[in-house]
C-alpha cells in the first residue's frame, strides 16, 4: 500500500432538509488504525455508510486507491477491498459460523454457479476455518451464528468482513455492548488485524481509542471538527468543549 488508500473530499449527505454530514475532507494512508469519534448522532455511522457504498453521497467525492466511487454499486465495494461491520451485528443468523464465513468467501469465488457442490469449491472450506481461527472462533464452527455469545457474533462479523480480503476495514463500534474481558480480546484482535490493512473504527470507549489509534477524526453535528494524533485530539479545545459540555468527560458507554 503506497500512496493514500482513501481520499474523501468535501463529502456530504443530506436526508431531505437535514444535513447529516457536511464538508468532510480527509485522506487515509498508511495509518493502521484511525478512530472516528463523536457524540451520538454526530454522523459516524452515516460516514461509514458512505464509505461502504450503503448510501450514496449527496455532495463531494470519494476515491479509493485512486478510483472514483461515485457510480460504484454497493455490491462492488467488497470486491474493490472495502469491507465493514455494522453497529448492530449483521451476520447470517441461522447459518453456522463456518457457513457464514464460507458464504462470504464465495462472493469472490462463485456467485452464479447452479451446478457444482458448494462444499467442494477449492480451498473455501479451509480458508473459512482459517478465518474463524484468526478471530478466535475455531471452536464454534458448527454453531448457528444466532446461538453464539454477543462478543462471538461481533468477532464472526469481522471474520465475514475479512473474507473480502479488504485493504480498508470499517468497524462500527466493534466493542459495543461488550464487557471488559471481551473488549480486551477485541483490542488484541484489532492490533493483529491492523498489521495488514488500514482500519477505520467508530468507538465510544475513549481509553481504548487513545491506546489503539494512530489518528483520530472527531465528528460533531455532521462536521469534522478535529483530525490529529491522540495527543493532539486530547489537547484540542473544541473537542474538549464538545465532550465536556456533553457529559463532563470522555465518558460515553
Amino acid at each position: 500500500m503506497t500512496g493514500p488508500v482513501l481520499q474523501v473530499e468535501n463529502l456530504g449527505r443530506r436526508f431531505g432538509a437535514f444535513s447529516a454530514l457536511e464538508g468532510i475532507s480527509a485522506t487515509l494512508g498508511r495509518q493502521r488504525i484511525t478512530a472516528v469519534i463523536g457524540p451520538n448522532g454526530a454522523g459516524k455511522s452515516t460516514f461509514f455508510n458512505l464509505l461502504s457504498g450503503a448510501l450514496k453521497p449527496t455532495s463531494g467525492s470519494l476515491r479509493f486507491g485512486g478510483r472514483d466511487l461515485a457510480r460504484v454499486p454497493q455490491a462492488r465495494f467488497a470486491h474493490l477491498g472495502i469491507a465493514r461491520s455494522y453497529q448492530i451485528t449483521t451476520v447470517f443468523p441461522r447459518l453456522t459460523a463456518h457457513e457464514n464465513v464460507r458464504t462470504a468467501l464465495q462472493a469472490r469465488a462463485s456467485r452464479y454457479d447452479f451446478w457444482s457442490r458448494r462444499d467442494r469449491l477449492a480451498g473455501l472450506e479451509d480458508r473459512a476455518d482459517a478465518l474463524l481461527d484468526s478471530v478466535g472462533l475455531a471452536g464454534r464452527r458448527g454453531r448457528p451464528a444466532a446461538a453464539l455469545a454477543h462478543g462471538e457474533q461481533r468477532a464472526l462479523e469481522i471474520a465475514i468482513a475479512l473474507a473480502a480480503d479488504p485493504k480498508l476495514l470499517l468497524l462500527d463500534e466493534p466493542t459495543a455492548g461488550m464487557g471488559p474481558e471481551e473488549t480486551k480480546d477485541m483490542v488484541a484482535l484489532l492490533h493483529r488485524l491492523a498489521e495488514a490493512r488500514a482500519i477505520l473504527l467508530v468507538e465510544h470507549k475513549m481509553k481504548m481509542i487513545l491506546g489503539l489509534s494512530e489518528r483520530i477524526l472527531v465528528l460533531h453535528h455532521g462536521r469534522l471538527i478535529a483530525d490529529g494524533s491522540p495527543a493532539e485530539i486530547q489537547a484540542d479545545r473544541e473537542v474538549r468543549r464538545v465532550y465536556l459540555g456533553q457529559s463532563g468527560g470522555y465518558g460515553h458507554a
Binding site: 465495494f77 467488497a78 470486491h79 469491507a83 449483521t90 447470517f92 458464504t103 465475514i160 473480502a164
Partner: peptide
C-alpha cells in the same frame, strides 16, 4: 444487508 456487503448482487 450482509449479503450485499459481502459483495453479492
Amino acid at each position: 444487508t450482509r449479503a450485499r456487503a459481502c459483495g453479492f448482487d
